[in-house]
Nucleic acid binder design. Structure first.
Lengths: 337, 337
DNA sequence: AATCGGAGTCGAAGCGCTTCGACAACCTAT
DNA sequence: ATAGGTTGTCGAAGCGCTTCGACTCCGATT
C-alpha cells in the first residue's frame, strides 16, 4: 500500500507538502503541485482513510439510518438511499448504511466512535426516541420526515399536509363531494409515523373547509385486504366518487377491483394517488398523483448536511411543496341523476 | 470524546490492558476485566474508529455496491441490502453503501484507501469490468450474481437455470405445451445480466427436453408495454396456455390484461412468476412462484465474507436451489376441445 | 538600504489505538 | 531449592496522516 511518505520521496518534497497539495489548505507553487500530482498518479496513491480520520477527526462519512421494516414505501426508501449516496459522493463523502435495528444505540455508537461525521435519519416517528440523542450531540444531522417537536433539528420532507389538501382540492374542483381515503397499513398509524398523520390532517381540514364528506380507512397492501376495505367503504358511503390512495401496494388492487365492479375510472370514480411518479405512470390507468420526490429529498438532506459540516447552514425545516400531476384517473364527478 | 487512555486511568491500569480487555487477544484477570468494563460503562467509552483502523489496518467495514439503476428488482435489492447490513452488524461490521455510479474506480478507491475490509458486489454482469480488479487484489469479495468466468471469485446466487427448468416442469406436469416467457426489460438482456440469461437457458433447455414450445419476449414493466407484448405473443402463438413472468412490474399488468380479455387464471391460462414471495401473495391472484431468496442471499454473502476475513473459507460458488410454491395462478391446461 | 510581508516549503508533534517484547509474579515439576 | 512455564500487566513503538509553527526567499514599501 502506497503511503504519503512514498509519494513525497518520489516527488522529492516533504510529506507535509504532499498533504497540502491534496488538501489545498496552503498555497503550493504550480511546478511542485504538478510534480506531486504526477507522482500520485504514477504510484496509484490513495490516502489511507483511517489515518486521515484519526489526524483530522473527520471521517468523510455520512451515516444513513434506514428503517428495517419493508412494510411501506420500499421504492421510495431505495430511491432516497441512492440519491443520498450519489449526492454524498459529489461532495466527497461516503455513506454508511445503518438499519433501524440497533435503534438509538446506533446513534451513540456512530457519534461516539467518530465513524461518521454526520447522520441522516429516515422513517422518523412523531416522538422518536433518537431525537434527544441528536439534540444532545454536536454532530450534525438531518431528518427525512417530520417529528412532533422540531426545535434544534433540521428536517426535510414533502409537505404532506399540503399534499392532502391538494388532493382534496383537485377532487373538489371536479365536483366530487364524497371522498374516501385509502391509507397506509394500520401499523403505520399506530407507530405515529408523521407523514401519514399529516396527510390525513390536510385531507380532513381542507375537505371540511370545502364542505366535503371524507372517510378514512387504513389498509394493508395487497388485493385481499383492499377488497375488504373497499367493500366496507362502499357499504358505508355508497355515494363515494373520489378516492385518495396513500399506499403503493393498494393502488393496483384498487383499480382492479373497481374495474371488476364495473366502475369506470375516471368516468364513474376518480382516483388520486400519493406515490412516486414511476408508480403512477406504470399503473393500469395512468394515475393523477402527487409525486413523492424521493430523489429531491435525499439530495436535499445531503446538501443541508454538507452545509452544516462546512459551518454554513443552520437548523431549519424544509417542506417541499407538493405537485399534482393530472393524468387519466380523475375526471368530473358523475352528474347526480 | 472519551479515549482509551482516560478509561485506563479511571480503571487504574495501562492503556494496553484496556485494549486487551476489548479485543480479548491476551488473557486478563477477572477482577481487572471487571474494573475496566465498569470504567468503560461509566465513561461511555466508544473506541475511535479511525485510530483503530489505522493501528490494526482493519476498518471493520464491508462495502456494498448496489446498482444505480432502478429499472429492475428494487424490492429485491432493498431486501438484500438490509439483510447485508443486519448480518454484518451481528459480526461486528458496518456497511458502506456504494452505487454503481463510480464503476470500477470505486473498487480502486475502497481497496486503496483501506476504507473497507471487503466488498460485496451486486448486479454483476457476465463480463463485468470490476472483476479483473477483484482478482488482482487480496481484498476479499463476494459477488451476488454470477459472471461468465468465476475463477478466483466467490459468488452467491439463486440457481436461475434450475429456476427456469422448475417453472417449465411445473407447467409441463399440468399439461401445458405452449409457453410464453415475459422477461425483463430489453436493456437487462443487452447488458448481459447473468440471471436473466441463465433463467432463459434453463427455460429453453428443459422445455426442449420436454417437447414444449417456448416463446420468449422481453418486456419493459408497466401496463402499456405489457399490453403490446401480450398482444404480440397471442398473435404469434394463439394456443399459449402458460406464462412464466420474470419481471415484477409486469406481473400485475399481465393479470389485469388477461382478466380483461376474459381469460381466467388459472382455468384458461396458468401464470408462474419468478419474484419475491411478498409480491406473489400480494398480487390480485395469489401467484404460483419461484421465490427470490433475497434475504438468504444477502446473509450468505456476508457470512462468506466474514469467513474469508477470519482466514476460514475459500472461493466457491454457492447456488441456492430454487423452490416453487404452488398458489392459485396455475392449474391444469384446458382440455383441447 | 533597511524593513516588512507574503508565498512556498519543511520538520516535528500528535491524533487514539494495537501489538510486540519485557518483566514480575506465581505455579509446577524436578 | 531451582529451572521452566504460565499468566497478567506494562511501556513503547509505531500505523499514515494533518497541522502548527518556523524558516527561507524574494519582491514591494518606505
Amino acid at each position: 500500500m502506497v503511503t504519503l511518505a512514498e509519494v513525497a520521496q518520489h516527488a522529492g518534497v516533504s510529506a507535509s507538502t504532499v498533504s497540502y497539495v491534496l488538501s489545498g489548505k496552503r498555497s503550493i507553487s504550480a511546478t511542485t503541485r504538478q510534480r506531486v500530482e504526477q507522482s500520485i498518479r504514477e504510484l496509484g496513491y490513495h490516502p489511507n482513510a483511517g489515518a486521515r480520520a484519526l489526524a483530522s477527526s473527520r471521517s468523510n462519512i455520512i451515516a444513513l439510518m434506514i428503517p428495517l421494516r419493508t412494510d411501506m414505501y420500499v421504492p421510495v426508501m431505495m430511491e432516497i438511499a441512492i440519491a443520498v449516496a450519489t449526492t454524498a459522493r459529489t461532495h466527497g463523502y461516503d455513506v454508511l448504511l445503518l438499519t433501524g435495528e440497533e435503534g438509538p444505540d446506533a446513534v451513540r455508537r456512530v457519534t461516539g466512535s467518530g465513524l461518521a461525521d454526520a447522520m441522516i435519519l429516515m422513517d422518523v416517528q412523531l416522538d422518536d426516541e433518537r431525537l434527544p440523542l441528536l439534540r444532545g450531540t454536536d454532530q450534525p444531522s438531518v431528518l427525512i420526515g417530520l417529528p412532533a417537536d422540531t426545535t434544534g433539528l433540521t428536517c426535510v420532507d414533502l409537505d404532506f399536509k399540503a399534499t392532502g389538501a391538494l388532493c382534496v382540492e383537485h377532487l373538489a374542483m371536479l365536483g366530487h363531494r364524497d371522498i374516501a381515503v385509502i391509507g397506509e397499513a394500520p401499523a403505520v398509524y399506530e407507530r405515529h409515523t408523521g407523514f401519514a398523520e399529516r396527510t390525513l390532517d390536510g385531507l380532513r381540514l381542507r375537505s371540511q373547509e370545502l364542505g366535503m364528506r371524507l372517510l378514512h380507512r387504513p389498509c394493508e397492501g395487497g388485493y385481499d385486504a383492499m377488497a375488504v376495505t373497499l367493500a366496507r367503504i362502499l357499504d358505508e358511503r355508497p355515494g363515494t366518487t373520489g378516492f385518495v390512495v396513500q399506499n403503493e401496494s393498494a393502488v393496483e388492487p384498487l383499480l382492479a377491483l373497481l374495474r371488476q365492479q364495473g366502475r369506470a375510472v375516471p368516468e364513474d370514480v376518480s382516483v388520486v394517488a400519493v406515490c412516486p411518479d414511476q408508480v403512477a405512470v406504470q399503473a393500469s390507468v395512468r394515475l393523477t398523483s402527487v409525486s413523492i420526490p424521493a430523489q429531491e429529498m435525499g439530495r436535499h438532506a445531503v446538501e443541508q448536511l454538507v452545509a452544516k459540516l462546512d459551518g454554513r447552514g443552520s437548523d431549519e425545516v424544509v417542506l417541499i411543496a407538493p405537485e399534482l400531476t393530472i393524468r387519466a384517473s380523475t375526471g368530473p364527478a358523475p352528474s347526480q341523476s
